[in-house]
Design a protein around this nucleic acid. Structure first.
Length: 689
RNA sequence: GCCGGGAUAGCUCAGUGGUAGAGCAGCUCACUCGUAAUGAGCAGGUCAGGGGUUCAAGUCCCCUUCCCGGCUCCA
């Protein structure tokens, strides 16, 4: 008997068929136009090939080129075509993996180093050929054994390694022309559907992301359904490059990094330093207003301090070698916390004093591997806007809430509106694990064992609880975490509660990073995006169950007994260096009026207007504005151009006309000429500094 | 640290094994000017550093330093 299949379409129509339905047939039946535009389908919400067959009742939605869901399909298919082209150009290249990523795709290959930049045009040409060949993407299901044999014969040892670790017996392989790849799909119907692609870059990448594994060559590319979209994207990349803080930092004379001082060490030039000073002033005022006290601590300390804190044992790889002075060893500080603890411990503390909040703009030095340094964003010497809160457990929630609010207030003050917030937990399952999108057991398993985990485990874990999974696969490392289980659970509950109260109502969905916490406590991180979409961590709020024990940080409670203090580390901007880098990119160098190192520049038309220019200058200086006069022997057009390129918010042109009427001709950097007005009028239009 | 690509005047960049270039910036002079570049002249180089090949090296090879794109790691 033939079974009737009822298919519910996106618009609610129901189609009944006798027997299994080939989606591409159904699509064609609905409309020629739809068929031409479709690249895949969603069956009960799951993305599948158009060549898939539906044999039971289902809802079906066709994914057209305009659908955002089509993009990953385009990219993944183009990755396959790219791999095919690479194999044609470098027959010895072994396939690794090739996923779609945020703005494109990559494919990793193991080669003898043949894959280099100058081959890109040739590979692109080959991709073009494959597209014109319009090869069909065919899905073939093999069992594990067949697949291993198949890829072994084709000398694809990396693929064989992957297959061996897939728990399922049946797996899918995709084929177009002479090219075969292990893949779950879905794919475009054929290579001819690819309309616009570009290879962007080659870079090294470790096999399976592990630096002990061999290095592969990663080919980055991107693709879009239309040429226009690709061009727009490439244009966007160019625009982003113009906002790069390293380029602007040089052009605007904000900072430099020089060979003679060394990599990752920042020289703040006067204009950059002025901006930093403004940020610092704001930071100090804000913190004093919110109950913080300021402290200052030295840059070096006896090695004994770092032995007590545990940095000697656990952080040495990031610290510079000891400095010997009169037979004693000192070390440059990588963190400020031990000093703040020492200040706390100069008295016996009462519960009445708590919470104590010590803030410091503390300059720290950390060894960073040379390859990771990046302008202002990743450096070796930096100043944290650090603070440590010492409190009793009952203060925690209020303190954390205050921290999160302060962080958001500060970041918003600087114009950031988009945040990515991450909650990193310890190894003890808590409410946090279920918070937000939650964590699947599979994710947890991968997190614990990495991609190289025993595949058998994947099946087994579904029957286990979080706790059992952690104990089974991570139990041996649990004792590396400081503090008691109940402390972790309580702290994570507090963090979740605060996020629910403060962050979720803003429409921000925090990410959960299971066991992403440092060994000493769970944390909340807030990131902002840079010009090209890279996320940089600014704020961080971290519990510490370790240092209070190591330094015996206590307070006397109402009960007259000593209790272990709870300690929170927190930085709002993160570091002045990184935050400055983010600011430069965020504003593209055109800092808002209150941050601009020069707020107003006076441009005299000629020499005879200098005297008046000076009058205007002193008048404005009385109001505390940052102002300067352009003394160049140049035409007004040139002076305007210079001020414009330096992105100075206001230019005041003064000539005969202004001198006579005691006025200024105002030009704003974006709006242009605003006309002539009395000085007082100009002053009244200025934003507060 | 690893893979790949780089480093030429203060900046941005040309440069084919055969005499080191341009524009901008700087300095000097002239011009005294009305909303994005006035003109002329001058000066500016251990071609990142070191070694090698060659009759001859900015150019080819090796090492070191630093930078860029990723990977890994992180504020």
């Amino acid at each position: 008997m033939v079974k009737t299949v009822r298919i519910t379409l996106k618009n609610g129509d129901v189609v009944e068929k006798n027997g299994p339905v080939l989606l591409s047939d159904l699509c064609q039946e609905i409309g020629k136009r739809l068929f031409e535009d479709s690249v895949a389908a969603k069956v009960n919400g799951k993305l599948v090939d158009l060549s898939a067959i539906v044999d039971s009742d289902a809802t079906v939605e066709f994914v057209t080129v305009k659908d955002p869901d089509a993009l990953p399909v385009f990219r993944h298919s183009t990755a396959h075509v790219t791999a095919q082209a690479v194999k044609r150009v470098i027959p010895g290249a072994k396939l690794a993996i090739g996923p779609a990523i945020e703005n494109g795709y990559y494919y990793d290959f193991h080669t003898q180093g043949e894959l280099t930049l100058d081959l890109l045009p040739k590979i692109e040409e080959e991709i073009g050929k494959i597209i014109r060949e319009n090869l069909f993407f065919k899905r073939v299901v093999m069992n594990k054994e067949e697949a291993i044999k198949f890829f072994s014969e084709r000398n694809e040892s990396l693929k064989v390694e992957l297959i061996r670790e897939i728990p399922d017996e049946a797996l899918s392989v995709y084929n177009q022309g002479e090219f075969w790849d292990l893949c779950t799909g879905p794919h475009l119907p054929s290579t001819g559907k690819i309309k616009a692609f570009k290879l962007l870059n080659v870079a090294g990448a470790y096999w399976r992301g592990n630096e002990k594994n061999p290095m592969l060559q990663r080919l980055y590319g991107t693709t879009f359904p239309t040429k226009q979209q690709l061009d727009d994207y490439l244009k966007q990349l160019e625009e982003a490059a113009k906002r790069d803080h390293r380029k602007l930092g040089k052009e605007l004379d904000l900072y430099s990094i020089q060979d003679l001082t060394g990599p990752g060490l920042i020289l703040w030039h006067p204009k950059g330093a002025m901006i930093r000073k403004i940020i610092e002033d704001y930071w100090r005022d804000e913190h004093l207003a919110r109950g913080y006290q300021l402290v200052y601590t030295p840059h070096i300390a006896r090695v004994d301090l770092w032995k007590t804190s545990g940095h000697w044992d656990f952080y040495q790889d990031n610290m510079y070698k000891p400095i010997e002075v009169e037979d004693q060893e000192f070390m440059l500080k990588p963190m400020n916390c031990p000093f703040h603890i020492l200040i706390y411990k100069t008295h016996k503390r009462s519960y009445r004093e708590l919470p104590l909040r010590y803030g410091e703009m503390g300059t720290v030095y950390r060894y960073e591997r040379s390859g990771v340094l990046h302008g202002l964003m990743r450096v070796r010497g930096f100043t944290q806007d650090d603070a440590h809160i010492f409190c009793a457990p009952e203060h925690l929630e209020q303190e954390i809430e205050n921290c999160v609010r302060l962080a958001l207030d500060i970041l918003r003050k600087f114009g950031f509106e988009e945040f990515a917030i991450t909650l990193s937990t310890g190894p003890f399952p808590s409410k946090a694990w279920e918070f937000g999108k939650g964590v699947s057991k599979k994710e947890l398993y991968k997190k614990l064992l990495g991609e190289t985990g025993d595949p058998a485990g994947l099946k087994e874990i579904e029957a286990l609880s979080y706790d059992q999974i952690v104990d089974k696969f991570f139990g041996h490392r649990k004792n590396e975490f400081a503090g008691e289980r109940n402390e972790w659970e309580h702290a994570e509950d507090v963090l979740v509660h605060v996020l629910q109260k403060v962050v979720v109502p803003l429409g921000i969905q925090p990410e959960i990073d299971i066991i992403g916490a440092a060994f000493y406590g769970p944390k909340i991180d807030i990131k902002v995006k840079d010009a090209i979409g890279r996320e940089w961590q600014c704020s961080t709020i971290q519990f510490d169950f370790n240092l209070p024990r190591r330094f015996d940080v206590k307070y006397v409670g109402q009960d007259g007994k000593e209790h272990l203090a709870t300690m929170v580390h927190r930085a709002m901007l993160g570091s002045f260096e990184r935050f400055f880098g983010c600011l430069i990119e965020h504003y593209g160098g055109a800092f808002p009026f209150w941050l601009a190192p020069v707020q107003v520049r006076i441009l005299p038309i000629g020499e005879k207007h200098l005297e008046y220019a000076k009058q205007v200058e002193s008048e404005l200086k009385k109001s505390g504005y940052r102002i300067e006069i352009d003394y160049q022997n140049e035409k007004i057009g040139a002076k305007i151009r210079d001020a414009q390129l330096e992105k100075i918010p206001y230019m005041l042109v003064v000539g005969d006309k202004e001198m006579e009427s005691k006025s200024v001709s105002v030009r704003e950097r974006k709006q242009g000429d605003l006309g002539t007005m009395a000085l007082e009028q100009f002053l009244s239009t200025l934003p507060n500094h």
